[in-house]
């Protein structure tokens, strides 16, 4: 699994290098507001990502993918069973689905100049706030429900007690 993570990290680094070689379009990271000094603006949405979409999307989806990979890496290999992978895979698919919807609605807005409001925010932002933020809480649900199955199983607990007993014995002998 580490080789996969290493590969994705290298791809992310190379993506930044490639993007840098291509040069930065104007306003790629915003500019000052014409009227208010403490505000910045993004300006022409489509123009500032011109030629950088692929690089931006690679970094964006890689971030959403790396997070569950790190989580899975934290679970002992012998506890990563089929149920674990199914649950993690399901939540990751859902999380990435909302990340995809965010991009879909954003691109639609860039093309048409129109969007709809959802629970107080434009659709792409609503996907970010309610979809991406909300579905990621399901990783916590897996942690709670699967705690004794994947995170700290009765066998792990027994091993832990053995380690502590061994330490106590060494201390006592010393």
């Amino acid at each position: 699994m580490m080789k996969w993570m290493f590969g994705i990290l290298v791809i992310m680094a190379l993506t930044i290098v490639v993007a840098m070689i291509g040069g930065a379009p104007e306003m790629v990271s915003g500019g000052p507001h014409s009227e208010y000094s403490g505000m910045s603006v993004g300006g022409d949405s489509a123009a500032r990502l011109n030629g950088l979409w692929i690089e931006g999307l690679i970094l964006y989806f890689a971030t959403f993918l790396m997070a569950p990979m790190f989580m899975a890496f934290g679970v002992a290999e012998h506890n990563r069973n089929k149920t674990f992978w199914t649950m993690m895979g399901g939540v990751t698919a859902l999380n990435i689905f909302f990340a995809f919807l965010l991009i879909y609605f954003y691109v639609d807005f860039l093309n048409t100049g129109e969007t709809f409001m959802l629970l107080g925010f434009p659709a792409p932002t609503a996907m970010m706030l309610y979809g991406c933020w909300g579905t990621a809480t399901l990783y916590t649900v897996i942690y709670i429900l699967g705690f004794s199955k994947f995170i700290f199983t009765p066998e792990d607990e027994k091993k832990f007690e053995e380690l502590v007993a061994a330490k106590n014995q060494t201390v006592a002998e010393a």
């Binding site: 790629v28 990271s29 603006v41 990502l49 950088l52 931006g56 954003y106």
Partner: peptide, 14 residues
């Protein structure tokens, strides 16, 4: 400025 309230804000996607 639409970008400000769009998901990546005025700072942009990167």
């Amino acid at each position: 400025d639409p970008e400000t309230i769009m998901p990546f804000g005025s700072g942009g996607m990167f």
